[in-house]
């Protein structure tokens, strides 16, 4: 077991952990090496294509290298956080290398030309020059996404429970859901414009639809697949329908519901761009389109990275919530 863990998580890091205090974190040293190499390349080689923020990028890489250097001797004193760092040691090394290669191929050699590719320093340049607009976009998108996603999964969950529980509901609802499910969000734009009072409401609807449909489908499947004997047991113990739905059907199908919510989360992000195409004034999706139109791909990449990070963060949060609620599943899966 521990050998397997060591293999998968990078043996070098684990072994130094086993050393007494003062043991050196070798991967930290290597990371410091690759990061300072990238700093040197960025600073030392001339830019073939001008992107701006060259020095700042070199400085940041150098500071990163310094931090890894310091960590390589202190990491064992940092407890849990230190162990996480050690776990990701190989990633830090590769990240430094990757940034270096990327930087050389774009800014320094020009093999990957402007405007289609942007070196890391180009992205940095976007962040330092356009940060205020990006922040506003994040706020706008956050509002749209939050309203759409949460109303979507709530309605989707309720609809899913009804579809899975009631035969009559399923008779009318399931075919509709199956028809609506595969329709791409952009196909809804014409009628949403007509139905909803404002563009903002229409956009919320699109996000809600994208996140609600997988939740509805998976919840319905989960509820209808609940082992009949659970209902029998509950009924002999005196349960009424309400109890059967809320205390048997829903908890039993919660694992499925979470799969639906994960899917809904990804779909909702994918649909943001479409939703903000409707005429939003701000928002990350809007930012992407606006800058694509002007071939400002560095801005596009910069916004994409922000979206990816936010999405990853939300996925992480969802995992925490799932582990809380589905603790009983540990050891079954």
């Amino acid at each position: 077991m521990s050998a397997a863990v060591e293999d998968t998580f990078g043996g070098a890091g684990r072994r130094t952990l086993a050393l007494p205090f003062g043991g050196v974190w070798r991967n930290g040293l290597f990371a410091a090496g690759t990061w300072s190499l990238t700093a040197a390349l960025s600073y030392g080689l001339p830019d073939v294509i001008s992107w701006g923020a060259t020095e700042l990028f070199a400085i940041i890489m150098l500071v990163g290298a310094g931090i890894f250097l310091a960590l390589s001797v202190t990491v064992h004193r940092l407890g849990g956080f230190g162990r996480t760092l050690i776990h990701y040691g190989p990633w830090f090394i590769v990240l430094g290398l990757w940034l270096g290669v990327w930087e050389v191929l774009t800014a320094k050699l020009g093999w990957l030309p402007k405007p289609f590719f942007s070196p890391p320093q180009g992205l940095l340049h976007v962040y330092i020059t356009d940060w205020d607009r990006l922040l506003i976009c994040i706020a706008y998108t956050g509002r749209l996404w939050g309203l759409g996603f949460f109303s979507g999964i709530l309605v989707g969950f309720a609809a899913g429970v009804a579809l899975g529980w009631s035969k009559r509901f399923a008779y009318w609802g399931m075919p509709l859901l199956k028809l609506i499910g595969p329709v791409p969000a952009s196909a809804w734009i014409p009628c949403t414009f007509f139905i909803f009072p404002s563009v903002f409401h229409a956009s919320i609807f699109l996000v809600a639809l994208a996140s609600g449909i997988p939740v509805a489908i998976l919840t319905a499947a989960g509820v209808s697949q609940v082992n009949r004997s659970f209902y029998d047991v509950a009924r002999t113990l005196g349960a009424d329908n309400r109890f059967l739905i809320f205390k048997v059907a829903i908890p039993a199908s919660l694992p499925n519901v979470f799969v639906g919510i994960f899917m809904g989360l990804y779909y909702s992000f994918a649909v943001l761009v479409v939703a903000e195409m409707l005429g939003a004034k701000f928002g990350l999706g809007w930012y992407l389109q606006f800058n694509t139109a002007y071939s400002a791909y560095a801005n596009v990449y910069a916004a994409l990275i922000i979206m990816a990070l936010i999405c990853a963060g939300l996925v992480r949060l969802l995992f925490v919530a799932r582990d809380r609620l589905l603790g009983w599943q540990k050891g079954i899966l």
Binding site: S229, T236, W328
Partner: peptide
């Protein structure tokens, strides 16, 4: 209809896995 005056202990334990 079922009634808790008459309780059946099933052949498989059929405990609710999400409940302690």
């Amino acid at each position: 209809a079922p009634n808790p005056d008459r309780i059946l202990v099933f052949q498989d334990a059929t405990l609710f896995p999400w409940r302690t």
